[in-house]
Computed example of a mutant assay.
Amino acid sequence: MHRFKDLEVWKKSRLFCSEIYSITSKFPETEKFGLTNQLRRAAVSIPSNIAEGSSRHSNKDFIRFLQMTLGSAYEIETQLLIAYDLKFINQKELDSLLKNLDSIIKMTSKFKSTLQ
């Protein structure tokens, strides 16, 4: 069992979640139940899956939750690109968010490989 609060990837993903909430607060009101909701739910699922997986008693179970974490990260990447296409975010915002997301993906992948 791992202490999720000590995991750097959990800390970083929690901060990333706050970034997503901040950026989506500027989206059009018509997207409240669309892209805004989708991005926020996917962002929340990243640190949540890490926390839930850390409570499992086997590495195999934890790996499964880390895989879900990666799935949410790639979902966010797609949604951010769509938000950019729709001009809800600019290039600078997109680049910054994708850089942070890429770091989370790499950290998660590396951590997952250490558990195998």
Rank of each mutant, 00 (worst) to 15 (best):
M1R: 09
M1F: 04
H2E: 12
R3F: 03
F4P: 12
D6A: 10
L7R: 14
V9R: 03
W10C: 09
W10N: 07
K11F: 02
K12N: 13
L15I: 04
L15P: 01
C17L: 11
S18Y: 08
S18A: 06
E19D: 15
Y21K: 06
Y21V: 04
I23M: 10
I23V: 15
T24Y: 05
S25E: 14
K26E: 13
F27S: 05
F27Q: 04
P28A: 09
E29L: 09
T30V: 12
T30F: 08
T30Q: 14
T30Y: 10
E31C: 07
E31V: 04
G34P: 11
R40T: 01
A42G: 12
A43Q: 04
V44D: 10
V44Y: 08
V44I: 15
V44T: 11
S45A: 15
I46C: 03
P47Q: 05
I50H: 08
G53M: 04
G53H: 05
S55D: 08
H57Y: 09
D61G: 03
F62I: 07
I63R: 01
I63E: 00
R64Q: 14
F65Y: 15
F65A: 03
F65H: 08
Q67K: 12
Q67C: 05
G71I: 07
G71W: 05
Y74L: 09
Y74W: 12
E75K: 05
E75M: 03
E75C: 05
T78L: 12
T78V: 06
I82L: 14
I82A: 00
A83G: 11
Y84G: 00
D85F: 01
L86T: 03
L86E: 14
F88N: 07
F88I: 04
I89N: 03
N90C: 10
E93S: 14
D95R: 11
S96Q: 12
S96M: 11
L97R: 02
K99D: 11
L101S: 09
D102Y: 15
S103V: 02
I104E: 02
K106S: 12
K106T: 07
F111D: 07
T114Y: 12
